[in-house]
């Protein structure tokens, strides 16, 4: 809860209050419909309803916590930092890939139930948890690390302009929201996917790196950048606001040129 909300609450109470609990901020009931799946019991996933009391400042992740802690401890989902940095809690919220920890309840239409399900295209393990291994496999294949033969005494210098060239793609948190929003990836799990290409872009356009050619060759594959159909689902889904499709287009052009 924000400080401003606390102050407002204190003013409304007519007393200087320090407790958040007595804040008379209006709570509302939200219905969440979650796609549940327990591999040890269910043959097929099924939808389950939960009603929770939420505040305007709450996020979808808070609703999931409330359900898990107060109603059904078996609800399974990933989350770590809970602040949009670790990239653990990507899920499909009302049909779109979002981070549960960055989606405020009040920004959704709460007159209708909120639908929550696991991200698409990766093997479902339990409830909102999927097997991320195929995703990380593609990520590793593009060699997402600096490859340089020179061994400088101190740091490797780079001009601000050269750093700016790939700034957008350094923001990736590997949450898989982009890759699992891609219609090509849903039907063809072999496709590298947006996230792997974004992370290749980060090194291909880094002038300190010497292996741009190697990565361009890897992505000039049948399952590489040419599988991109520019649906822009990835750009819409990215919680860091990376222009993913633009990065893929730049890699496509670099493959045609044959160098960065």
């Amino acid at each position: 809860m924000s400080d401003a909300a606390n102050v407002e609450a204190a003013v409304a109470d007519g007393a200087v209050s320090t407790g958040v609990a007595e804040a008379p901020i209006e709570a509302f009931t939200v219905t969440l419909i979650i796609r549940r799946f327990d591999p040890e019991v269910d043959a097929e996933p099924h939808w389950q309803d939960f009603d929770v009391q939420m505040y305007p400042t709450d996020r979808v992740l808070d609703a999931l916590h409330k359900i898990k802690w107060e109603q059904d401890g078996s609800l399974t989902f990933r989350r770590s930092c809970a602040h949009g940095v670790c990239g653990s809690d990507a899920m499909r919220i009302n049909g779109r890939n979002r981070l549960a920890c960055k989606t405020l309840i009040k920004d959704l239409d709460i007159t209708k139930p909120i639908y929550i399900e696991a991200i698409k295209g990766l093997p479902l393990e339990k409830d909102l948890v999927v097997d991320m291994e195929p995703f990380f496999q593609s990520y590793r294949e593009v060699q997402p690390f600096l490859i340089a033969s020179s061994k400088p005494e101190k740091e490797r210098l780079q001009s601000p302009a050269a750093r700016e060239r790939f700034d957008d793609t350094t923001k990736c948190i590997l949450c898989a929201a982009c890759t699992s929003s891609c219609p090509v990836f849903w039907t063809d799990g072999q496709y590298f996917g947006p996230a792997a290409i974004v992370n290749a872009h980060r090194f291909i356009f880094d002038d300190r790196d010497e292996a741009a050619k190697v990565r361009l060759d890897i992505l000039n594959d049948r399952e590489g950048v040419w599988r991109c159909r520019t649906t822009f689902n990835c750009t819409e889904a990215c919680p860091r606001g990376i222009e993913v499709t633009k990065a893929i287009a730049e890699v496509k052009q670099a493959v045609i040129r044959g160098h960065r």
Partner: peptide, 14 residues
Amino acid sequence: RRPAGTVYRGREGM
């Protein structure tokens, strides 16, 4: 392993 979900709500691009 790959249950069909709801339709993804993509925008103009999709």
